[in-house]
Write a protein that binds this DNA or RNA. Structure first.
Lengths: 191, 191
DNA sequence: AATCTCATGTAACAGGTTACATGATTAC
DNA sequence: GTAATCATGTAACCTGTTACATGAGATT
């Protein structure tokens, strides 16, 4: 039950159409929650049905025409309640550690270049976050809302730092001692 | 497409019945991928159908009787191929950062105790991983497979370290300057 | 034999993914 | 006016979640 609340948050920050929301889910919001345009349109329909948002009056609201949505008081109330809700942490759903564990059983095969690739992707993401921090908060946060936005950004920084640290060590370890013949190591592990 | 491969890995490590797998998904494997018993039985059926695993011959294979599965060569081959597959990192699906972002819009409300709770859960998980490390690898890894298993464990440690670091700072920041009246801060943000 | 627990399921639904469809606008 | 693009959707499918059902063995 997070996508509707992500959408409510985004619409409170700025009323938008489905396509605009989709673009925002590829940038800022998308760093913490992803969604395709099909999900977004489906969810906008549900939220409107439930009376939490409404489409702004438009002259010709047909297919192919932009339709802007804004949050109704009921939607804001629902979001407020969600913030206060108690909800346990979810286990990670990134398959990479799982693939490494599988590699421990069937052999590392060709996993090393994939680890390198992921390490570099996470490094790039980390650098991006650091640029945001320097660009948007050069003198620290100036309002209560900015303080919280910066905290969220720092969350991304801490997570990416964790990935980079882990993958850095994994690449180092696996390039050091495992590069003999992958087939041989696979056979040994599989026996 | 990760659950079937998680199951293949688990079954290669040790042939098991559905209920045994379910218990293992509450411990070791569950630290990196979660699954309910319903998911596991459904997936075991598919994997057997696909010829990747088979039920060990049993005298009375009826309902309510344990049914042990083992991986067939085709299953091992599928797992090996999955390890080598190229697959992009997934964006996190933990709603907590999202809730903090929402709090920036509708006010922090009662989120602080929830942040404390999560921080403590992640701290406990981190300590648990460190105990595993001390207990299972007191002199470092002794085989290639142990080296990889330890790497996976270190992944968990690095991720939990990231959470603890972030949540520690978030709690500190929000207890310092935000504790006036939540309602007032909510109104200010919402304006 | 009634009840409890364990193991194996079924069913219904929500959320996420991929492929495809259609109306409106813009570029040529 | 035709083609490309943009915006809004529909449909089918897969994964994950929750509630419930049933057979077998153990407990009383």
């Amino acid at each position: 039950m997070s996508l509707p609340h992500a959408i409510l948050t985004a619409l409170l920050e700025k009323p938008s159409s489905g396509s605009e929301l989709t673009r925002r889910f590829d940038r800022s919001i998308g760093y913490f929650w992803s969604a395709t345009h099909q999900q977004i349109y489906r969810e906008l329909g549900k939220l409107e049905q439930a009376g939490l948002i409404r489409a702004l009056p438009s002259p010709v609201p047909t297919r192919g025409q932009k339709k802007e949505y804004e949050v109704l008081p009921e939607g804001r109330e629902e979001l407020r309640a969600w913030v206060d809700r108690r909800e346990d942490p979810k286990v990670s759903r990134d398959p990479l550690p799982l693939r490494l564990r599988a590699a421990g059983v069937v052999g590392v095969g060709d996993l090393l270049p994939e680890l390198v690739r992921h390490r570099d992707l996470h490094r790039a993401r980390l650098e991006e976050y650091r640029r945001f921090e320097r660009r948007d908060y050069p003198n620290g946060p100036r309002t209560e809302q900015e303080r919280i936005q910066l905290l969220v950004l720092r969350g991304g920084i801490d997570m990416e730092t964790g990935w980079v640290s882990w993958l850095g060590r994994a690449v180092e370890e696996l390039s050091a001692a495992a590069p003999a013949t992958p087939a041989a190591s696979a056979d040994r592990d599989g026996a």
